[in-house]
Computed example of a mutant assay.
Amino acid sequence: MKKHAPATLRNREAIAKILATELPESGRVLEIASGSGEHAAFFAERFPAIHWQPSDCDRDAIASILAHRIDYEGANLSMPMVLDTQSPGPWEVMGVDAIVCINMVHIAPWEATKGLFRGAAQLLGGKNLPLILYGPYFEQGVEAAPSNIAFDESLRARNSEWGIRTAEDLGRLASEHGFARTARYEMPANNLTLVFRSA
């Protein structure tokens, strides 16, 4: 039931530093594509004044999140909700003060990212609240790391709808939904954290 992603142990401290800067001091955070649930449990413990709402569209992921939640001793980690960003219609969640999405964009069809921004606009639009994306991204004018090029090729070989996206494509998509990029952080292992807000 309980899954473990090695990347979580490697990146959670670096991501937490960014979250400490970008998240509100208190409120409710919706995590999209929570995967194993390890990030959700770690960040809920790190930020006790924030109520963490994990979500995923995969049944095995939901089971793993539940297993990690059972071992979590705090009261600020919600039951995981089933949420597929590709599904039409509004998300069944209210009162969100930030959205965090870690390592989804490159291992999902582009439609999932379009749905992410569409749903974020529903929940965060016009409130200057953050949509925070972490993962590998290509950037125009920035030489891509050989490891990211190889990773992109392996992703596309596994599924033609997957692949590392460009920060510029994300920026255009964000603009279509009323968001603008307000921060860019270089992260370990050739990853980036990109922050979007809708004023």
Rank of each mutant, 00 (worst) to 15 (best):
M1K: 01
K2I: 09
H4Q: 10
A5Y: 08
T8N: 09
N11K: 07
N11I: 08
A14T: 02
T21W: 02
E22Q: 09
L30F: 04
I32P: 04
I32D: 08
S34L: 03
G35K: 02
E38Q: 13
A41L: 01
E45L: 05
R46E: 05
I50N: 01
H51M: 11
P54L: 09
P54H: 08
S55F: 00
D58F: 00
R59K: 08
L66M: 13
Y72P: 03
L77D: 07
L77C: 00
P80K: 09
M81I: 15
D84Q: 00
Q86C: 04
S87L: 15
G89H: 09
V93L: 11
M94Y: 05
V96P: 02
V96C: 02
V96F: 07
I99N: 04
I99M: 11
N103D: 14
I107D: 11
A108N: 06
A108K: 14
E111S: 13
A112P: 02
K114V: 12
G119Y: 08
A121R: 15
Q122R: 06
L123F: 10
G125Q: 15
G126Y: 06
K127Y: 05
N128T: 09
L129Q: 11
Y134E: 04
P136A: 14
G141R: 15
I149Q: 14
A150I: 11
N159K: 13
S160L: 00
R165M: 03
T166L: 06
E168Q: 11
G171V: 07
G171I: 05
R172I: 08
A174F: 14
R181K: 01
E186R: 12
L192R: 08
S198P: 01
A199F: 02
A199L: 13
